[in-house]
């Protein structure tokens, strides 16, 4: 594989891994704080699946990037500007409704992307996607159900879910903002051009929001800068100070 192809593949793998790593960490922040025990367990389980998927994606990314790095090195020893996750997943949790709204907006994307990745020309990408898509099917079923339950719930829960959708919708567009990495992945048959997933995504999200009696904002303005690392939000640095603290304070610590 040519050096530039390797760089492109590494960027793609970092995007996949960083999305699940950062969202997994955010969701794990709920552990012990959810409104009811069942939801606490569900959030912890979701976070666990995402962190597990992260180990596969970043493990492969570390191999592609050469050197003796491991998934742990990639997760814990990079700084903000090296992260390639979309901005949506690094946003603070907000209330329970906002957390589940973010989860659904992400799960819906994954539920469309992962089945495509199962047909990847890269067997490693394909097998990780095969594993992750089974878990994603559970995640999207639950997050969609919860969005509908709360959106079409009480006046209070409806108001909160609409506020969450209004707050998060400007972060949806970044998922579909293709660049040269996506073009290289599509040309190599490794991953689909994300822009090609938009219609299916809009159909799925539209259906669930209609059932949830929520209104998708008209504006298609999209915050960008996460998946290419150009500009992360201020929130990612704060997240990393907590997530990476142990390895920064005690380099090489393990158990």
């Amino acid at each position: 594989m040519a050096a530039s192809d390797k760089d492109m593949l590494a960027q793609f793998l970092l995007r996949m891994g960083d999305n699940s790593l950062i969202l997994g960490h955010r969701v794990s922040e709920w552990c012990g704080h959810a409104p009811v025990l069942e939801e606490d367990i569900a959030l912890a389980n979701t976070a666990l699946d995402l962190i597990g998927q992260t180990q596969f994606w970043l493990g492969y990314a570390a191999e592609v990037m050469d050197g003796d790095k491991t998934a742990d090195d990639v997760a814990f020893l990079r700084d903000v500007w090296d992260f390639r996750n979309i901005l949506l997943v690094e946003l603070p949790n907000g209330d329970f409704g906002q957390t589940l709204m973010r989860q659904f907006l992400f799960d819906a994307y994954q539920s469309i992307l992962l089945p495509r990745l199962m047909k990847s020309s890269d067997p490693r990408v394909s097998e990780i996607a095969e594993k992750a898509s089974k878990e994603c099917a559970y995640h999207v079923e639950r997050s969609a159900d919860t969005v509908v339950g709360l959106g079409d719930g009480t006046e209070e829960s409806h108001t909160r879910m609409q506020a969450a959708l209004d707050r998060l919708w400007p972060y949806v567009g970044e998922m579909f903002a293709s660049d040269e990495v996506d073009a290289a992945m599509a040309a190599a048959g490794i991953a689909p051009d994300p822009a090609s997933l938009r219609a299916e995504y809009d159909a799925l999200v539209g259906k669930v929001m209609a059932e949830a009696t929520l209104t998708i904002p008209q504006s298609d303005f999209a915050h960008k800068g996460g998946r290419n690392g150009a500009t992360h939000t201020e929130h990612l640095g704060h997240l990393l100070t907590q997530m990476q603290w142990l390895q920064r304070a005690y380099p090489g610590a393990s158990w």
Binding site: E38, I41, A42, A44, T46, L48, R142
Partner: peptide, 13 residues
């Protein structure tokens, strides 16, 4: 069904 997730990732409540 009470919850899609249970005490371990492989179980529901």
């Amino acid at each position: 069904k009470m919850s899609q997730f249970g005490s371990t990732p492989c179980k529901a409540q």
